[in-house]
């Protein structure tokens, strides 16, 4: 299964989906060196946003990635909005939509702790590096500890005068 993060992001943005890029792709975006295959996003679980999500996948069949047999998504927007997380798989790859991002909180908290960046001429929200470090430290798994270590160094470096950040 290919992973087309560029097309996933473009579709989400163009459909007006409310989301914030978090976790692995966000860490890579800040300069961490661990590539991640899937795309994780904090997602506003409302009916309106779920409708926009379904529009984003117009013409692309989507499945629940973590269900027996990976059953197709047949729920309507209201049913999707009642979920806490949504793990999607399609020909564009894997997209994990998270309603909670411990210890940061829900979507609104993630949004508050994010900033706008430009991707292919479009604005997209990226979680800020402090919140991302908190998430990685809270997860505490070996791979998250490693990424958090790099992020702390990146934060330290970017707070040093005369140094990038470029674009974040």
């Amino acid at each position: 299964m290919p992973q087309r993060n560029d097309e996933l992001l473009t579709r989400l943005i163009d459909a007006g989906v409310d989301f914030v890029i978090v976790v692995g792709a966000a860490a890579f975006a800040y300069g961490a060196t661990y590539p991640t295959v899937d795309l994780d996003a904090a997602f506003r679980f409302t009916r309106e946003n779920a409708e926009r999500l379904l529009r984003a996948f117009d013409g692309v069949p989507i499945r629940h990635a973590i269900t027996p047999g990976k059953r197709p998504v047949t729920e309507d927007a209201s049913a999707l909005a009642s979920l806490r997380n949504l793990y999607l798989e399609s020909d564009l790859g894997r997209l994990d939509l998270l309603g909670e991002l411990p210890p940061v909180g829900g979507y609104e908290d993630a949004l508050r702790r994010s900033h706008s960046v430009t991707l292919h001429g479009r604005e997209v929200r990226l979680i800020d590096i402090d919140a991302l470090i908190e998430c990685k430290e809270a997860l505490g798994r070996p791979k998250d500890v490693l990424v958090a270590q790099q992020l702390r160094a990146i934060r330290e470096r970017t707070s040093h005068p005369g140094v990038p950040p470029r674009g974040v």
């Binding site: 992973q3 087309r4 993060n5 560029d6 992001l9 792709a25 890579f28 975006a29 800040y30 300069g31 961490a32 060196t33 590539p35 991640t36 295959v37 960046v117 430009t118 991707l119 292919h120 990226l126 790099q150 160094a153 990146i154 470096r157 970017t158 140094v163 990038p164 950040p165 470029r166 674009g167 974040v168």
Partner: peptide, 20 residues
């Protein structure tokens, strides 16, 4: 990491796609 930090956000996302 230093090398990546001299790239823009957009370039890093493109780098990730190329890595994948």
């Amino acid at each position: 990491v230093e090398q990546a930090m001299h790239r823009t956000f957009e370039q890093r996302i493109e780098d990730l796609q190329r890595a994948i």
